[in-house]
Simulated scan of single mutants.
Amino acid sequence: MAHTDLDRTAPGRPVPGRRAAFARRLRFLRERAGKSQAAVAAAAGVDRSFYVEVEGAKHSVSVDKVFLIADALGIAVAELFTGLDERTGRPETAGDPLTGDAGSAAPREPAADQAPSQP
């Protein structure tokens, strides 16, 4: 897989906040699922070194790959972005890097599979 200079963060140049927040969230979800970077990369069909750099905030990830990574983690795509402040990329609360949730050892059920709440 070829990467262009646009894919990389120049040395000494700060990583965009949104990308850094996404990377922290991705790592949190992977660790919560009890999977290695290599296992997630293999399940998503992406190169391990590319996945490591996405999780390290060195690369942005395409929409296509976002879906593959979510599938590899066994979560809904929306969970990758839960709690992300759209303007700054900063966490909205404390705890889980983005949601403030203390988390659990078991992955959450995807939002699409949850029954609607009743008043």
Rank of each mutant, 00 (worst) to 15 (best):
A21Q: 11
P110W: 07
T88E: 00
P16Y: 04
R18M: 11
G95A: 02
K65Y: 13
L6C: 03
E109T: 06
Y51N: 08
L73A: 15
V54A: 06
P14I: 03
D85S: 00
F81V: 01
A115F: 08
A21K: 11
L80G: 02
S60C: 15
P107L: 13
V46R: 08
A41Y: 14
S36R: 10
R90Y: 01
V66E: 04
Y51E: 10
P11S: 03
V77R: 05
D96S: 14
A43R: 13
R48S: 10
L80N: 05
P11R: 04
R8V: 14
P14M: 01
G89W: 00
L98C: 09
A20P: 00
A72L: 12
A10L: 10
R27V: 07
V63A: 08
A2N: 10
A39I: 06
P107A: 09
F28W: 09
G103A: 03
P16M: 01
K58R: 06
P119L: 14
T99S: 09
A23S: 15
A21W: 02
A111V: 13
K58T: 04
T99W: 02
E79K: 12
A33H: 10
L26R: 03
R30F: 07
H59I: 03
E109N: 12
A102K: 09
A112V: 08
S36K: 10
Q37H: 07
L73S: 09
A41H: 11
A2P: 13
R19D: 04
S104I: 15
A94L: 07
R25K: 06
E79C: 02
R87Q: 15
V77N: 07
V52T: 06
E109D: 14
E55M: 13
D85Y: 01
S104F: 09
P107E: 07
T82Q: 15
R30L: 15
A21N: 04
Y51T: 12
A57P: 01
A70M: 05
V15T: 07
V63D: 02
A39T: 09
L29F: 15
R18Y: 08
A115Q: 10
A94C: 01
T82M: 14
I75M: 09
H59N: 08
A111P: 05
V40H: 06
R27Y: 02
G12A: 00
F81T: 00
I69W: 08
R27I: 06
V54K: 04
L73P: 08
K65C: 10
I75Y: 05
A76L: 06
V15Q: 04
G89I: 01
G12E: 00
R108M: 15
T82R: 06
V54T: 05
D96T: 00
D71T: 13
P107W: 12
A2H: 11
I75G: 08
R18W: 14
D7P: 02
A44Y: 14
L26V: 09
G17I: 00
V15H: 03
L84M: 08
G45M: 13
G45P: 08
T99E: 03
R90N: 02
R13A: 15
G83S: 00
A102R: 14
A72M: 06
R48F: 09
D64Q: 11
E79M: 12
V15Y: 02
D113H: 13
A106Y: 09
F22L: 04
G100D: 02
K58H: 14
E109C: 10
H59D: 03
G45Q: 13
K58A: 05
V40N: 11
L68M: 12
F67P: 00
G56F: 00
P116M: 14
V54I: 13
